[in-house]
Simulated assay, not measured.
Amino acid sequence: MTATQQTQQTRTFRLPARARRAVLLLHVVAGVGWFGIAAVTFVLTLAMLTRSDSAVVRAGYEFHELLIASLARPASLITLGTGLVLSTGTKWGIAQHYWPLVKLVLTVATIAITASLAPGWIATAARLSSGSVDSAQVNLVGMAAFHLLTVGAATWLSIYKPGGRTRWAARTRSPSVQGRR
């Protein structure tokens, strides 16, 4: 078996160019949407801190929950799914370079933290009486800021691709490919 044949056999699956571009487009649109929703929820949660009408506060947090359930949750899951497809179907890999691995950790952590904490905070904030500020409201502002930071950081990582290759990269490459660094 020649080195070329061995390289072709050990090569992992790669997305065809047209499919890669389609998945990348969906990934970018979902990520931008997620960031936009985070910005809206940040402004909304800040505005709810200063409202004195209980009905307005309740409506604001009900709208916040609607944004999360109908837009943010699907956008975050689409971003995660398309990111996994792109990292496994392109040269970057999940653990070949630091930046896709860090993006994965940021995305999973953001989804997990939000899914576990935000529903209770939203329910508590929606029940508050007028004029009072509760820790749940402040936590929701912090959660929205956390989303802006993590999704913004993931976007930055995608553009600048810092950090080089991971220590696992050399182990997952075939010997003939390692020699051609």
Rank of each mutant, 00 (worst) to 15 (best):
G36N: 13
R21I: 07
T12G: 13
L49M: 08
A19C: 06
T7Y: 01
M48A: 15
D53C: 01
L26S: 11
G33C: 05
T10S: 15
T12F: 01
R18E: 14
V23N: 06
F42P: 01
Q6I: 07
T12K: 12
G33W: 07
L15D: 07
T45I: 03
S52N: 09
P16Q: 09
V28F: 14
R51T: 00
V23Y: 02
L44W: 10
L25H: 09
G31P: 10
V43L: 13
R14L: 14
A22Y: 05
P16R: 10
R51C: 00
R11N: 03
D53V: 02
V40A: 06
P16K: 10
T7E: 13
G33M: 12
W34A: 15
Q8L: 15
Q8F: 02
L44R: 12
T50V: 05
G36D: 09
T45K: 00
Q5K: 08
R18V: 15
G33H: 05
V43W: 13
V29P: 03
A38K: 03
L49A: 03
R51P: 00
R18A: 15
T50N: 00
I37E: 03
A19F: 10
Q8T: 07
L24Q: 07
V28W: 09
F42G: 08
L46I: 09
R18C: 04
R21Q: 10
W34D: 05
Q9N: 08
G33Y: 07
A30H: 06
M48W: 05
